[in-house]
Simulated assay, not measured.
Amino acid sequence: MDVTIVVPLLNEEESLPELCAWIERVVDQHHYSYEIILIDDGSTDNSWDMISSLSHANPHIKGIRFQRNYGKSAALNEGFKAAQGDVVITMDADLQDSPDEIPELIRLITVDGYDMISGWKKKRYDNTLTKNIPSRFFNWSTRRISKIPLHDFNCGLKSYKRKVVKSIEVYGEMHRYIPVLAKWAGFRKIGEKVVEHRKRKYGTTKFGWERFVNGFLDLASIMFVSKYSKRPMHFFGLIGTISFLVGLIMILILIIGKIADPNKGISNRPPFYISLTAMVIGTQLFMAGFLGELIARNAPGRNSYLIEQKIGIE
């Protein structure tokens, strides 16, 4: 079985040797053919030197180094593009995800036929306000909106069929909603597995209260982009048409009233200005739909990142 383990990281030099050694023990025990892709997301410590050293000792370990910090989504996207395994597994580099989960995550994909398995950290060891409250709120809201019955969308420990990661594009802060991206790409068999969550051994968390705002905006963006990115006219054009028709009907009613009673004014009545405003807004939204169609077809650089170095990846 060919498996790729994708590990995005930021300032995790202390945990990398232990993590890689743990992964190696697990995959060797089960006789998997594997590669580990470590993506350094602009670390300011010696993480890249550690990746270079680990890769020199084990050619199965590969590395990608960003020139600056782009975020976890960018790191995952580059890892997905480089992945060659039949099954792709993602995990965090902080040792809070257990590599011992790898065999079962692979089995659920290869034997049970799931397209994607998302981990569920049912028992957590980081019950802080900045992590727990945002996670609970966004997991609840994402379940309601996406209709995907997962408890922990943001868990970094996931497994995928190779076809899934090659069919989705992760950008901005969309890593929280990869199951939603997979569903909108046509992959319906998405499952969940309770996974072990471990206490952080080194360093500190990289997330804070900003997840409240970012998470809500990301969810709104992904639902809109997933549904209308290829057909923005269906969204803007529909609203614009409705607004224009409402304004037109109001104008016609005023004109009919004027014909029936010549003494009635038109331009001196509030409905006249409301109808004109509705027609103008409707026209603008309709044009926005046309512009959106043009922009959607001409955005080649949306997912372009400056990569300073690569190890073992063409």
Rank of each mutant, 00 (worst) to 15 (best):
F138A: 05
K131L: 15
F138P: 08
S118A: 14
N132E: 15
S141L: 14
R144E: 12
W120E: 04
Y114T: 06
P149W: 05
D112E: 11
Y125M: 11
N154D: 15
T128M: 13
H151K: 12
V111W: 00
I145R: 10
R124E: 11
N139R: 11
T128E: 13
V111N: 03
Y125R: 15
N132D: 15
K121W: 01
P134W: 03
L129K: 14
N154T: 15
C155Y: 01
R136V: 05
D115Q: 01
R136G: 05
I148A: 09
D126E: 08
R143D: 01
I133L: 11
N154S: 14
R124L: 05
T128D: 10
W140T: 13
T130Q: 14
S135L: 05
G113L: 06
N154G: 09
D126N: 10
I145N: 05
K122H: 07
F137N: 06
Y114L: 11
V111A: 00
F153Q: 04
D152T: 02
T142D: 02
D126W: 01
R136I: 03
P149A: 13
L150P: 10
Y125W: 10
K121H: 11
I145A: 13
R143G: 03
R144G: 06
G113Y: 03
N154Y: 01
I133E: 09
F153G: 01
T110E: 10
D152K: 00
N154H: 15
N139Q: 07
N132Q: 15
F153W: 09
R144S: 10
